[in-house]
Each structure stands twice: as C-alpha cells, then as structure tokens.
C-alpha cells in the first residue's frame, strides 16, 4: 500500500505546483478524513481490537480521492466524500480486502452525482496560459461538445497532446500530468506491485477504439489527446489496478482492462458525463467476481490432458 503511495508522490507534488495551496488543502483534508473515518469506524462501530489504520490503505484511498477532486472544492464536500468512500465503499463490506468497489472511486462517483456543479468546475491551471480563453472548460468537455455539435473545428482549441502529457491543462488534481503518473506506474511495475496487464490493456484499447473513431469521423478527438486527457492515466495505473477490486489472473485482468477501455470511450463520447473512466472502472469492479469465477489460471498438466483427449 505504501508502495502505491510513494508512486503517487511525484504526481501529488506536481498538482501542488499547478494548483497551489488549494491542492494542498484538498489533499490534507481528504487523507485526514479517510484515516479518521477508518479509525472511528473500526473502533466504535465494528469494535475490532486490531486497528487497521496504519496499513496504508486509508491513506491511499484519501490520496486517490483527492486526485479525483477539483482543487477548489469546499472542505465539507471532501469530508462527505471521504465518509462515503470509507464508510460505505469499504467498511460496510467488512473493511480491507472485502470491498467490491474501489473506495476512492465510490467516493468520487458519489460526489460527482451529488454535487455535479462543484465537481465539474475546475480552477485555471496556474501555470497554463494558453487556454485562458476557455476558462473552466476541460479538454474532455470540449471533446464532447465537438461530438454533440458535430463541429470538429472545436477540437482545434484543445491543447496539444504534448502539453497534455506534461500536465499543462485543466482538470482534477491528479488528472493533469500523465508523465508523472506514468513515472509512478513504472515504479510500481519495477517493484512488482502491479503487473502490466491492466494498465496496458486499458490504454491500448482506448487508443485503438478512439483511433478508429477518429479515422471514421474527425469530430472524434485524436486518440493521443484522448489517452492523455482527464483521469484516464490515473484510472488505468492506480484505480483499475487496485488489488482488491481487480481480477486475479492475467487473462481476467486483460478482459477487465479491455472492457474498461471500451466503456470509457463509450461513456466519454456518447454519455451524459464528459469523463467516463470512473464509471467504467466501477462497472467493471462489479464484474470482477464473475471474471474471477470464469478465468481460472491454467492448471499444471492441463495442456497434456487436452492433447491426450485428441
């Protein structure tokens, strides 16, 4: 758990740099609220002797939740989100290891549905000067607007994919710098905290699906811009790979990743919300037990059995 937290550090520092003090407040509020709720619920409601606060999972949930929020969100909303994430998303199922949905995502989706205005009003990226003409509008809403208005010229206002890759665009705290997120992801791969299957399958699926759409009709955005925008990198590397809520076997993980990729593009392009990553992951979280049930690892000797049958 702490390994993932370390992997998130560069992106966190970048968000502090881009969004200033607001980001620090959001991050602190979110982490503290998550840890507090975890402690309070285990101690006073579940009445367990062993407190699991220090295993790092609550801190991670807090960090991920903060990454999914705009940096100017009022603190009471953050606390509410943390309560939902920890209280409903995790502890109702029995705590660490038992939850069906990624707690941080559950918190974010709860907030997104309950407070749509606050959740989709982003402050200007403090460093970015190019997009000041479009205050508050993120690349994602631009992309969706281009589709609904069937006007590909709107896409010209998008920042270049290199800018998006480096983090010079608007969005939630953790959505800005794909570069640093990938750096953290590489760290996790190197430490063998995660395997490549889920992130790679999600990103490749999105790339391929969005690429086909872009080729078919230019109102759909350039696939490179699609993968570097919004929470895709954050979701693919940190949220979808959550141990508890992702499938066990490589085969299952590939299916899971591909489905998340498809759902993300579908929701982004044709859904009501501009961002589909969190919904896609939550939906696939629900399918994880089913995938686990059908994607068994290849048993030793199975190959021989089939050959013998022939």
């Amino acid at each position: 758990m702490y390994g993932v937290c370390i992997a998130l550090l560069p992106a966190m520092l970048a968000s502090f740099y881009f969004f200033g003090l607001g980001a620090v407040t959001v991050m602190l509020a979110s982490v503290c609220a998550c840890v507090f709720f975890e402690w309070a619920i285990t101690k006073f409601i579940l009445k367990r002797d062993r407190l699991t606060v220090l295993d790092g999972s609550a801190i991670l949930t807090g960090m991920l939740l903060a990454f999914n929020l705009p940096s100017n969100l009022p603190i009471w909303i953050i606390v509410l989100g943390a309560l939902f994430a920890i209280g409903v998303g995790k502890m109702t199922f029995g705590g660490l290891g038992q939850n069906i949905f990624n707690p941080a995502l559950a918190g974010r989706v709860f907030l997104l549905i309950s407070f749509p205005v606050q959740m989709t009003t982003w402050p200007d990226n403090a460093v970015d000067v190019d997009t000041d003409a479009l205050t508050g509008a993120t690349p994602l809403s631009l992309m969706q607007k281009a589709i609904t208005e069937k006007n590909p010229s709107l896409l010209n206002d998008l920042p270049s994919s290199l800018d998006m890759f480096l983090g010079l665009s608007d969005g939630s705290m953790g959505e800005v710098s794909a570069l640093l997120l990938l750096l953290g992801c590489a760290f996790m791969l190197w430490r063998k905290i995660i395997t490549w299957h889920i992130p790679v399958s999600i990103i490749l699926t999105v790339l391929a699906f969005a690429g086909l759409l872009h080729l078919a009709n230019p109102i759909y955005a350039n696939p490179m811009q699609v993968i570097f925008s919004g929470g895709l990198m954050l979701g693919a590397c940190y949220m979808a790979t959550d141990y508890v809520t992702s499938p066990m076997t490589p085969k299952g993980q590939l299916i899971y990743g591909v489905c998340i990729g498809l759902l993300t593009v579908i929701i982004r392009n044709w859904g009501a919300y501009p961002e589909g990553m969190s919904f896609a992951i939550i939906i696939m979280n629900a399918f994880t037990p089913l995938i686990n049930n059908y994607c068994k690892p290849k048993r030793f000797g199975e190959v021989v059995k089939k050959e013998a049958a022939k």
């Binding site: 699991t52 660490l96 690892p297």
Partner: peptide, 21 residues
C-alpha cells in the same frame, strides 16, 4: 496475518496453477 487484499501474488506463484487464496 493481515486481511487478504486479493493481490493475486499467490496465484502467480503457484507452480501448479491453482488459486491458493
């Protein structure tokens, strides 16, 4: 022992292709 976090490391390590968890 801490709670199982379903990380699937045991599934990857099992030389018989079983699901120890």
């Amino acid at each position: 022992a801490e709670p199982c976090i379903r990380c699937a490391k045991c599934v990857g390590a099992c030389p018989m292709g079983l699901e120890p968890y």
